[in-house]
Amino acid sequence: MLRIVRYVLVVVLIAFIVVVYHSNASPAVSFQEVEAAYTESGLLDGLDLQNARQLERYLGITPEMYEEAAYWKAANPMSADELLIIRAKDEQALAAIEECVENRVNDQTTLFGDYAPEEAAKLADHISDARGIYYVYGVGDAADEWDRVFNGIQ
């Protein structure tokens, strides 16, 4: 009887693994390939690649939270355009990153709200999407296309 229970439990474990593996999985490619999908898409005009310190400065995302990240920001200071793709350390770190992004969107909306309503509108339509421990956040006219790139990566 105990032996049968053990076998049934193992079958349940395998079923769980199959479901988890196919439902909440990160893209099946390296971070560099995800980054390349954006840089080669021609959708980053007017955005400059930033470094880790600028990512921390603008969004409050510290290196403890992620394994790899790429952050582009509009060269024009009057624009709210920015794009972040990130591979979080784990799910808790991902939750912390999402919180940072939420704060960033709120701060930017307050900043641009009074004098640049078109930028505020872009912020209202920002994208924020996660697959496994990969995450994308974007503000800009191409935001929906950035999201499509993210979800199109196998």
Partner: peptide
């Protein structure tokens, strides 16, 4: 799988799952 891909220059697709704490 990542190591196999790197060592043999092949591309076995795999998903990166979050580590259960």
């Amino acid at each position: 799988l990542g190591s196999i891909n790197d060592i043999f220059g092949i591309h076995i697709p795999y998903h990166d799952l979050p580590l259960p704490i």
